[in-house]
Design a protein around this nucleic acid. Structure first.
Lengths: 354, 354
DNA sequence: ACCTGGCACTCCGCAGCTTCGAGTGCCAGG
DNA sequence: CCTGGCACTCGAAGCTGCGGAGTGCCAGGT
């Protein structure tokens, strides 16, 4: 952080900070631009509107506030929100009720995808913003088992279980015919052989096997290898749960039909979402991106409140909320944080079943 | 159909029919209300606007047309569309390009859910309406196999394959511990025992087994039964693919933000969609529902173009397009029909693999 | 040095008015 | 039975004026 920036921020005298804080809070609540008069009336300041106007003018000069037009009140800028989040916000901890709902739901889910789906749903319902949960592809993790089941004469379902408990299944079509017996043998072999490997490693080892002398003559081995390669090459997507896109339909900032349309379509672009979530994956703890601070949020005046989940040992994903810049950060932050922790706990539990 | 209705419809003299047809077509194309003047200008009639006005007034009396307000042109009513669809429409057959796209895509997909997902996607892209594909739950069909795979110490994945090739997998948690060996045996047993049964029948037979003497003592059998019951009781949903809801954002009839919101939310109510699609499941061939002809479409001024797919022998689902009443029926009808046929063919092929 | 009331100014939103054009219905004449 | 003409209706668009909400600035008070 450049010194000048710091200087600015610390330079704000306490009164200005209070004013900024009040403006941001009121604006978040009402959505309107805040005038000096409303501010004076709120009772927190023993100042006349005129004095407040001076303070507000200063804050505008520093780039924390903006006026939509002359003779409208002031509205926080991205920087204003950022300052608010960094220095002024007092997180409102979750209500007992909310905590209960989260704990209850998370503990009742079983499969990991069920848990994640539920998490995005919870985020949506509890925040009334768009809830997003991201799980990176299995590719980066080691697998625990690899099984094959006959589905049709020429179709085999391959079931991969990651060390993190993620279960992925893919149906592959093969030119060989397999019997149940064979598949059972192959399952045993593959699991024994590859458990602990990442998919990438599995692929390399399979390829190496084809080169060995033995493979040329052992038909069974050939079939195993071919099936394994098919299975590993089958595309395995990351999972992205986006829930509650319709909740933006309510928000007054998107009352305009054209803007709404644009905003809505933006949320369908999963690739961009994945991209930005992946870029947050490194950082520990809660992250908040406001408006112009990232490409995606900047284009659409969004903010993102995100947190990594998962234990240190195993791969992580992200939970996040996406909404308009004007959102209740003080409530969203603890919500995302709590849910992230709950998920992490759940996942750690599942790793070491009692 | 009541005689009176028939009378009305057949009573329309050829000129009135032509006029109605032209109005519907022009309105579908432009979205505007059609005036006598525009109609006269189109060249298809050797009549003055005044004469056309008379014809139009008659059509309005009969309920085929309506005026949004005095001094606006005329717009087709539900009945108008219905008459158009039944008697006036000339289906425009698919372009070679479109047919090619469909055939190509359908033939390249493998798993049935992949095919269906693709189908809804195609419907959307080719029609620019909301594409819907519905597959009823597996419950009504006989199964071909039933396998179990170890996923974690206390979690078993159960894989059911229907005679129609549908593959369903569910992860169940059990209080027993299973080894790979056991699961393999159970899989063999279950498949041999239950292949050809509907899930309901499987459940009943499992329950009956618990009552037999043997079950009391044979631990292995107990475990099998418990697992089987878990698997069969795991909820198995119907599949519903809805794609392209965002395409209604474009349609001028939903320019108003409030209406758009309402419309959009309506499309999220999958239950109602399922309900209406299920009700169409009985009828063979293409079905078109216009506006007030059904609850769902009536509430939102939608129309639905739907068709059953699947072979006679095996269970069927529906493919459909949902859009505003003002849609190009002449193009949608063949599109849905063709896709339905393509799907049916694909499914029949998969039933009897060469 | 700082706060404050007052005042001029700007700008938005709204209500009311007019105008314009697009349609229709009806009628009388060919 | 068709047609041109005419009166009438209605909505969309544009203009105007006004009130309200805000701000900026200044001069005077503490």
């Amino acid at each position: 952080m450049p010194a000048k920036h710091d200087f600015h921020e610390l330079d704000l005298d306490p009164r200005a900070r209070e004013v900024l804080r009040e403006i941001v809070m009121q604006h978040i609540e009402s959505g309107d631009a805040i005038s000096s008069r409303t501010l004076a009336k709120c009772g927190r300041f023993d100042l006349s509107p005129a004095s407040l106007r001076n303070v507000m003018a200063d804050l505008e000069d520093l780039g924390y506030l903006a006026q939509p037009h002359t003779s409208a009140g002031r509205v926080p800028t991205d920087r204003g929100y950022r300052f608010f989040i960094n220095h002024l916000m007092k997180s409102r901890s979750l209500s007992a009720r909310e905590r209960e709902v989260i704990d209850d739901q998370v503990s009742h889910a079983h499969e990991i995808d069920e848990v994640l789906h539920l998490a995005s749903n919870l985020l949506w319902k509890l925040s009334d913003q768009v809830g997003v949960v991201f799980m990176p592809t299995l590719l980066q993790f080691a697998i625990r088992s690899m099984d094959f089941v006959l589905v049709a004469e020429n179709k085999i379902m391959c079931i991969l279980v990651g060390v993190n408990g993620v279960v992925v299944n893919k149906i592959v079509e093969t030119r060989f015919r397999f019997t149940r017996d064979e598949l059972e043998k192959i399952s045993r072999f593959s699991t024994a052989e590859f458990s602990g490997c990442t998919l990438d490693l599995v692929r390399r080892r399979l390829v190496r096997m084809t080169e060995q002398e033995r493979a040329q003559h052992d038909e069974m081995l050939q079939k195993t290898i071919s099936l394994g390669i098919e299975a590993v090459n089958a595309p395995i997507d990351h999972d992205l749960y986006v829930e509650g896109a319709e909740s933006i339909l309510n928000k007054p900032e998107f009352a305009d039909a054209a803007l709404l349309r644009k905003t809505f379509l933006a949320l369908q672009e999963k690739e961009r979402l994945v991209e930005i979530l992946e870029s947050c994956l490194q950082a520990e703890g809660l992250q908040i991106l406001v408006g112009s601070e990232s490409d995606f949020t900047g284009d659409h005046n969004f903010s993102i409140v995100a947190r990594r989940y998962g234990s240190q040992s195993t791969p992580n994903g992200m939970v996040a909320i996406i909404g308009p810049m004007r959102m209740e950060y003080a409530r969203m932050a603890p919500l995302v944080d709590y849910l992230g922790r709950a998920l992490s706990r759940k996942i750690e539990e599942q790793e070491q079943p009692r």
